[in-house]
Amino acid sequence: MSEPTLRILLVDQNVMRASILEEGLREAGCASVTVVRDMQNLLRRIVDVNPDVIFIDLENPNRDVLEQMFQMSRVVSRPVAMFVNRSDTETIEAAVAAGVGAYVVDGLKKERVKAVLDMAVSRFNAFNRLREELDRTKQALEERKVVEQAKGILMKEHGLPEDDAYALIRKAAMNEGRKVRDVAQSVVTAAQLLRPRK
């Protein structure tokens, strides 16, 4: 590549997401990626890195802090704007939907930035999918834990084998049109309430 590599600053308090994007950018040949988590010295870092592109996660309330810094062009040597121009509404939409804000310095050629923007959007989306999967796994684990507890209570109370205890919960759920998890939770809660008080 004849043109110098883009300097990229990434502001993200989520360590995992930041490293997913950083890795993607490096794989795509962007050698100059700086990750900032500490907001206190953000301005100093922007001045030092003098980035061409800044990414920030949209969950970050400090996004408004960043925008003010760009407002004050005296502080940052080159004017920075979100995205390149008005015709980029599709890019803006994709980025916001993925949860990333992108700021690009004035005068950069659109073609040069596009690949980097696309990379950020796809990596943020990948992270979102990961997070959803993690949430689902966590939920499934929680659910299993409650059902196991409820089965244990029924086995002890009624002297039932495990399979029958589970069948009892499932039948109650079907009869009442509730989820197995919810019935199991009720069993656990009821058992706690009925436990002899100390």
Partner: peptide
């Protein structure tokens, strides 16, 4: 929302 910039962006892109 968590920032005014998000309010602005999500309004102008139609979220």
């Amino acid at each position: 929302e968590t920032s005014w910039a998000n309010i602005r962006d999500r309004t102008i892109i139609g979220h």
